[in-house]
Nucleic acid binder design. Structure first.
Lengths: 156, 156
DNA sequence: CGTGAAATCCCACCGTA
DNA sequence: TACGGTGGGATTTCACG
């Protein structure tokens, strides 16, 4: 599933990963092409669904959202998996939901306001379909947090 | 550290969290104000550093980046913490680095191409300053992955 | 695929309420 | 804070190499 991306496409994507609101004329300057060419390439990149979306990321502490936690969830019977995932997805404080190898069948990343709201959320998770037990790790400090993936010229 | 955000600001931020490239005229339409008013508000929101940044998020599978993993790292002596964190931050495949409560002192989220590159990365992590041992959980499926935080009108 | 040029659209800046 | 008007910049469209 490797795409036909040349160095110019890679450069555009790299810049957009760092600055999602980069103007087309600035991108054109970076890659050394005209503005219409950049627009054309951006359209194609989006049509290929290479770009999941453009998002503003807010600073959680500025909104008094002080707690980040990672939660292992053991969902008892695989027949509950789908229902559990649906319930977890609908929870706004659940930022990520994965199924994983190892101890616990599912893994959540959550963000919440304080210990009180954390307790409420944990209770809620524990009553979700099939949940047998949970184990939480609370974040003390965050040193890096990004979704930027490293891009290099494809060797096709 | 609660800010003076009214419902209009919240609506703007909500939309920008979902569509980071939303135009000011579209935002104006959503909140029922004129374009200059929205611009004014956006400027103030950015001046208050409520917005960490705007980012394009790429679809990792489209770039053959098939493995996501969460790694607990036990850094032996707290005197190594700073050096370990620096080393981890510089690794492009390390998307997140936190210090946490519970087993293991640090926690990483990583994305890499395949099992081979995962092995390389794990070896590298194990040689970082102070690293005593690691425990990995590989992601099988991802059902939700966002950095959108739930916003509601502040009760100030 | 690439471009320059024209039409259109968006936005920063102003004066004003 | 809010607004409308306006000039300049950004984006889209298009004819063409």
């Amino acid at each position: 599933m490797t795409h036909q991306l040349d160095g110019t496409d890679i450069k555009i994507l790299r810049e957009l990963q760092r600055n999602g609101r980069a103007r087309r004329n600035k991108l054109a300057e970076i890659v050394g092409l005209s503005v219409p060419s950049v627009s054309e390439r951006m359209k194609k990149l989006e049509e290929k669904n290479l770009i999941d979306g453009y998002y503003a990321v807010l600073d959680p502490r500025s909104f008094d959202i002080d707690i980040t936690a990672f939660i292992f969830v053991q969902v008892d019977n695989s027949s509950f998996y789908a229902d559990f995932v649906e319930a977890a997805k609908e929870e706004a404080e659940v930022l990520e939901c994965h199924s994983i190898t190892g101890d616990g069948s599912h893994f959540l990343k959550i963000r919440t306001r304080n210990t009180e709201s954390l307790e409420r959320l944990l209770s809620k998770i524990q009553t979700m379909p099939g949940v047998k037990k949970t184990r939480s790790n609370i974040v003390l400090s965050t040193f890096k947090e990004t979704r930027e993936i490293p891009l290099q010229e494809e060797v096709s």
